[in-house]
Design a protein around this nucleic acid. Structure first.
Lengths: 240, 240
DNA sequence: TTATTCTATTTGTAGGACAAATGTAACAAA
DNA sequence: TTTGTTACATTTGTCCTACAAATAGAATAA
């Protein structure tokens, strides 16, 4: 098998780069307008198709908006648009999925900083409602969507919209992973259960009520233990 | 001023969506090939230009590769390609920049989990070298690039490539912020200095050597205090 | 001054043409 | 038969022209 020649840069690739460069060079900010298509055609000596391909990409990323007659306007890009589009777990390697899980653990632990800085009594009330609803369902019947409600609320309290979005976008990866690698996750969960090491949302909530940040971070670590195991040990099955 | 009608979905938008849908519906994975351009033209009853615009976007995201005669092949997308392209700090609102800073704090705190799980003696040796080189330069002469070398190494030890990349991509935002909001950061730093609360890389390294995770997380919090201040207090200047 | 109409401009879409690359088949040579 | 070469057909990459749809701004009317 030949080594893949990956040097297939098209004109659209170059023009895309040039236009981004143009924005930076001229210190354009959201609200400013760009040259129109034909001007780019003349500037770079290429066909309108190519310009349109490049602009189409920037449009998708939310970097520009286009309107007839008005031309092209720069907008504040929605940072995670591209990310959202391509996160199809089926397309990700196990390595990448492990990295997503690592990201999840890091975010959950780190976000506790902001969680405990911001939380107030009414937040705790809402968390209690979520938890009691979930206890009614029963821990074993909890779907991953139910599971996520609690964590989404945590992120919301932490007050960082970007991180909330990020977590929401990664969510399908975890759903997929726990389904696709069920033969791994199931015995791990059972083992943890046997050892009495399952950490529930209620356990997390207890720490939150006590405003015990370190306790919470510890508990989160336990709560996400199956991911940790997966990252370090898959495909071997082993619990320390 | 009129309310912006944002419903300008073009055919390219729709076709892009359709093709992503096509991939999911048919459970295609990296290595599989897609219908060629003309087949999409017929499938959706549109012009080749539109198909090419849509494919051009997917190509940019790293979701597909195209080669003459061979057609279109699905590849594992590089998750952060789109993100990397649009992170131009000039285009970001202060709100978004604050969110990036929050992300930075969360990552640095959270990544300590993996840092302390993975670190070995040779890593510590390398960290010592980095720190002593930086001490030679002097803390006040440290450029933000120098500053970043230490943290990049931390992420590398933690062993999550995605997070490393993520941090690297966000880096210019911090460079920009500290430059653009210098009138805020400078007095904050001076105030911290007066209070003797500056946390250096050397301080961090001490905690690492003692394998003191909680101490490290605490120290990181201090190290990133200016960002924390910015998030909560900008444009007001205030240190608790 | 205000409301309406008209016009010119700009993006969105379609379709044709050809160049460049290359997988595949046909053929030739060992 | 196997291997190497050549020719062909297919597919992407680029360019071009044309027209529809939308609309900012000018011209006009009330």
């Amino acid at each position: 098998m030949m080594i893949t020649k990956f040097s297939t840069t098209t004109l659209a690739d170059k023009v895309e780069e040039q236009i981004i460069e143009y924005i930076k060079k001229n210190s354009l900010v959201p609200g400013d307008s760009l040259p129109n298509e034909m001007q780019f055609v003349e500037m770079y000596g290429i066909s309108r198709n190519v310009v349109r391909e490049a602009l189409s990409r920037l449009r998708m990323l939310g970097l520009i908006q286009t309107r007839t007659k008005r031309g092209i306007i720069i907008t504040e890009p929605s940072l995670l648009n591209g990310f959202r589009k391509i996160i199809d777990p089926h397309l990700l390697s196990t390595k990448t999925i492990k990295e997503m899980m690592g990201m999840r653990i890091v975010l959950e632990i780190g976000v506790a900083e902001f969680l405990f800085a911001n939380i107030n009594d009414s937040d705790i009330l809402e968390l209690e409602q979520i938890v009691s609803r979930q206890q009614a369902i029963g821990i074993n019947n909890l779907s991953i969507e139910d599971e996520m409600v609690f964590h989404a609320k945590i992120y919301k309290i932490a007050g960082n919209n970007f991180i909330s979005q990020f977590n929401e976008i990664m969510h399908p990866v975890f759903v997929f992973a726990r389904h696709n690698y069920e033969s791994y996750f199931k015995p791990v969960s059972e083992e943890l259960n046997k050892l009495g090491e399952i950490v529930t949302h209620n356990n997390l909530l207890e720490k939150i009520k006590k405003r015990d940040k370190y306790g919470y971070q510890n508990a989160i670590r336990g709560h996400l233990k199956p991911y940790w195991e997966f990252i370090y040990n898959y495909p071997k099955i082993k619990i320390e």
